[in-house]
């Protein structure tokens, strides 16, 4: 992650969010999410949710193989939002799923895999 994330034209305003939240793998994004506060989740949600239709439309126009750096950054931001949104919508802003097993004890076999890899498994 970098604080000068290149974004596709029309999505430059999301560069700051990408620097804060985006990560190339599930493990990288989980570390960010586990350290987020309810206020962090709300701010992310409020900024991203209105833009989600446009973000998904932009990503829908590119295959995983064809993504340039800017779209890859947008992809990683969208993936972070995809995983973070339930914490605002469903879990009251908690970084943990309430009344659950510790997420840190779940080991994703794909945890360090590049999230846009075509052979993701």
């Amino acid at each position: 992650m970098t604080d000068t994330m290149q974004m596709p034209r029309g999505f430059e305003d999301l560069a700051g969010l990408a620097a804060e939240w985006a990560g190339p793998s599930e493990n990288a994004r989980s570390e960010v999410r586990w350290n987020a506060s309810a206020a962090d989740f709300k701010a992310f949600y409020d900024a991203m949710m209105p833009r989600l239709p446009d973000v998904l439309a932009e990503l829908g126009r590119t295959t995983l193989e064809e993504m340039d750096i800017a779209r890859t950054n947008l992809f990683s931001l969208a993936a972070a939002f995809a995983e973070a949104a339930p914490h605002h919508e469903l879990y009251g802003g908690s970084s943990e799923v309430p009344f659950s097993f510790s997420a840190r004890r779940f080991v994703p076999g794909h945890g360090d895999a590049c999230s846009w890899a075509t052979d993701f498994r």
Binding site: L59, T62, P86, S100, F101, S102
Partner: peptide
Amino acid sequence: NAAERVAQFHINALHRNAWLEDT
């Protein structure tokens, strides 16, 4: 496409979180 992969991450996260409740 890339949007479908992102959507898969969301659905996977919801289901993973339900598994956290189960375990």
